[in-house]
Write a protein that binds this DNA or RNA. Structure first.
Lengths: 298, 298
DNA sequence: GGTCACTCATATCGCCACGGTATCAATGCC
DNA sequence: GGCATTGATACCGTGGCGATATGAGTGACC
């Protein structure tokens, strides 16, 4: 059986995500008929039905579910191949560091300056991921290493823990709960987090499949917090570096701590990445007391 | 930048492996000029030189080395997507088990029969890998789980140890060394293994890049052993199940033991695979005494 | 040092695969 | 029952890809 084409995978993923041929075609900037034909040909080529479709409803078959997952990783692998080759061909190579804005626990300047005195150091390009992208851009080759809090998709990545610190709740300064010095999860019943989930669930629920990121940045979130519309869980270090008179931070019992991780593709052999991992973990260990580590065997 | 095409990756890999446009074109069943043009367009598209070429010599640039590695994994990911979707669409799903012939330590029948009484069990299709393929066909979706001895490429795989057992040397019965009941590695100086490497190196050296498997199957190898042309290292269990009057098996001090592993793609969620891992490790633990496990931290 | 063989690059042509437009067919809704 | 919606089919035009023919540079051998 001949190999699939990138075009077929892109088309399939678009239809599988939209579950609507017209919208998928629009997203792909093409007309609907050739898209329908391409999907039909793909199904013929594989000998497998990928969609159940009536004229009113499109849904994935089990084989389609499998292909959706694998097609995404394959497309990522293709993009990664291209981008990494481009990166490797640059006359002035660089270490592309992805991080979620404001989630570096204040360590970034110190890490960067310590890293620059390493023998294997390269100039660092910081890619701020913002809150838009849930998943680090490591899978498709846009970054060489990422620094971001759990949980995230670790598939195909090597990871290392930098630090674990408690999370606190950020709420409006005039919120009745701000009168207490310490809260419990149950106190937050009925409150909503920025992503719409119930606050008492602790805010670490994985996003449901098909989840669209809200796109709010941290400034927008903090404005909504000050208005009392939502509450938000943040690492303690972030709270101490974002003091605002209209927002109160309170510890919450039973709230799972936040773990800041380093992650990089498993296949990397780059000494620049290895040196960064070494420096970053050392800086984190020096600035934050190491908690007793527990190893969990399944 | 637009995505790469499967065709471009296939062409690039062919040229990168042959380091010769004419032979690569032949392998791809096409003429040489369009291949040259395709590579040139690929380099233009990426903005990166991938080959250094004179009219007499073709070699990879550093960027080309990077792309070769990533292109192979991307092509595997594409093949895997197609094959897994086909597999998922079968009316009678099956568990495709890959193993290196004769390296199952005699456990296969017992494992298979125990597995069939599992609730999550599927019919098992055994794919015998022979000695031709060094790397398990898990990466490209031809198998769901593999049973094979270390070392192999574990990139992107989850692995579990089944058992560790000593290896012995197989040599001609009329070999002078067969007179001894036990040997040392140094005694085997000057002997050759089937892959051509020096016997005293212990036979676990990783294949050099660009290595072509010899293609000899175990029968051919044993014939050569009986003739005294080569020696061979095999797990003790294999030796006891292949008694031949013209071949002697002798323990060798300092010879690293053989470890039989289970491996499967990290992304698998299949209960059929999980059940197989559980059953296979249980059978192995029951039949072979568990050695003291050592955890090695880097 | 000149000729030859080898190998990669360029030029030009032809075909077919893929996308566009027009239209049909089926289904749910008011 | 008519209408809007949505996926499928029919047909056509074009651009990308591969084949053939040929050029150009380089190492080898006498």
């Amino acid at each position: 059986m001949s190999d699939l084409e990138v075009r077929q995978l892109r088309y399939f993923v678009a239809v599988a995500e939209e579950l609507h041929f017209g919208r998928a075609a629009e997203r792909l900037a093409m007309a609907q008929p050739p898209l329908s034909r391409a999907i039909r040909d793909l199904e013929r080529q594989l000998g497998v039905r990928l969609f159940e479709r009536t004229t009113r409803q499109v849904s994935l078959t089990p084989a389609g579910e499998v292909l959706l997952r694998d097609a995404r990783t394959a497309l990522d692998a293709i993009s990664a191949a291209g981008r990494r080759a481009q990166q490797a061909g640059r006359v002035t190579p660089a270490l592309r560091l992805a991080l979620k804005a404001d989630y570096d626990a204040g360590l970034l300047p110190e890490i960067l300056s310590a890293y620059q005195s390493e023998a294997a150091a390269l100039p660092v390009e910081v890619r701020l991921g913002g809150r838009g992208e849930q998943i680090p851009p490591l899978h498709d080759g846009r970054a060489d290493i990422a620094m971001l809090p759990l949980p995230f998709e670790t598939q195909g990545l090597d990871v290392e823990t930098m630090l674990t610190e408690p999370r606190v709740v950020a709420l409006a300064a005039n919120d009745p709960l701000a009168a207490y010095t310490s809260l419990r999860l149950a106190d937050l019943r009925g409150r909503r987090l920025p992503d719409g989930t119930a606050a008492e669930r602790g805010g670490l629920v994985p996003p449901p499949p098909g989840w669209k990121p809200s796109g709010m940045d941290i400034a927008q979130i903090f404005t909504l917090i000050a208005l009392g519309s939502i509450v938000f869980y943040v690492p303690a270090s972030l709270a101490s570096r974002q003091p605002r008179p209209d927002i109160a931070y309170r510890p919450v019992a039973e709230l799972a701590p936040s773990t800041l991780m380093l992650a990089w593709p498993q296949a990397t052999r780059s000494p620049a990445v290895a040196a960064f991992v070494r420096v970053a973990t050392a800086v984190a260990a020096a600035r934050y007391p190491a908690p007793a580590t527990e190893t969990i065997d399944a």
